[in-house]
Simulated scan of single mutants.
Amino acid sequence: MIGNIKNKKIIQIIHHLQHCLQGKQTAIILSLIAIFSKGHLLIEDFPGLGKTSLAIALSKALNLSFGRIQCTNDLLPTDITGLSIYNKNTGEFEFKPGPVFNNIVLVDEINRATPKAQSALLEAMAEEQVTVDGRTYKLPKPFFVIATQNPVEIYGTFPLPENQLDRFIMKISIGYPDIESEKQILKSGSSREKLYTLTAVIDRDEIIKIQDEIKQIYLSDKIINWILEFVNKTRQDNRILLGLSTRAALAITYTAKAYAYFRSRDYVIPEDAKEMIPFVVPHRVILKEEPISKDEVILSILQSIPTPP
């Protein structure tokens, strides 16, 4: 269970968000870890559980600009990136930026977009830039994508390919709130209007500063070797068709460093990585036999590797 957060600034942000996002502490913490790890987040869950509310609340609490892309089958790449429009007064084409030119971009129901539209996000997520009509435009910093998808909806959807799934540093679900939290939600009604009045706890410069501080968190050779052994075992395991990439290994180290920072340490311990692996690894692995649980396979591999002292 994600917890034991000790960093005062992070605790302040979490408590601030919990006023509007009752019963979602774990999702809040994991989202913040993804942001401060300079990664992107995929949320797979049922409708009505607060995925959009989480994205809006994060943008307000972190004082970041917010853009939303509602994916449909007829969504065009230019609906994401923007396009050049001819200005008859100047006789020149002017670039009109799309919603991707925001700090936090919610890509709702990403699996409803066609592969061509999905691929328009790939350059933005990987390079923090987009290319339109042969010109490259830098995206604002920090840049963070929250994509959502419904796990049971199949009709009219286009499953994300492995190379795009690998771009998400984490895949999480929000889950149903506990009874007490849901009771409070029913008493007070929808909190969507409150989200837009949420005050900022931190600003853009502080976020970049924390990201830089997390980058400096110490990761010993023992833990690096342990992570590499885990990654290599996923590649050799006969239950797994597609093992972890080098990008996946980096994702484990980035999130483990962020979690160590959240716990007010300037060094990573094995437990930091173990806590992150269930959220960083499963969506990157393809099993030979789908009825087998990915979580069980990953846990068995973890348990087969001695934990470094």
Rank of each mutant, 00 (worst) to 15 (best):
I2T: 12
K6Q: 15
K8G: 03
I11R: 11
I11Q: 15
Q12P: 07
I14F: 11
H16D: 01
T26I: 04
L30S: 03
L30P: 00
L30N: 00
S31P: 03
S31T: 03
F36V: 03
H40S: 01
H40F: 00
S53Y: 05
A55S: 10
A61N: 02
L64I: 06
S65L: 12
P77K: 08
P77A: 06
T78Q: 13
G82D: 08
N89Q: 13
T90Q: 07
T90E: 14
E92M: 12
E94N: 12
P97Y: 10
V100G: 07
V100C: 04
N102I: 02
N102K: 13
L106V: 14
N111R: 05
Q118N: 05
M125Q: 07
A126L: 06
A126W: 02
E127V: 10
Q129L: 04
R135S: 13
Y137H: 14
F143V: 01
A147G: 14
T148R: 10
V152Q: 14
G156K: 02
T157W: 10
E162W: 09
N163P: 15
Q164D: 13
L165A: 10
R167P: 06
M170I: 14
I172M: 12
S173E: 15
D178P: 11
E180R: 15
E182T: 06
E182A: 03
I185S: 14
S188K: 15
S191E: 13
R192Q: 11
E193P: 04
L198G: 10
E206I: 12
I207Q: 07
E213W: 03
S220P: 06
I224M: 08
F230A: 04
V231D: 01
K233C: 00
R235Q: 03
D237T: 01
L242F: 06
L244F: 03
A248K: 07
A251W: 01
T255D: 07
Y261A: 09
D266N: 13
Y267S: 06
E271W: 05
V281G: 02
R284V: 08
I286L: 05
L287R: 07
K288D: 04
E290C: 02
I292E: 04
D295C: 01
E296W: 00
E296D: 12
I298E: 03
L299I: 05
P309M: 07
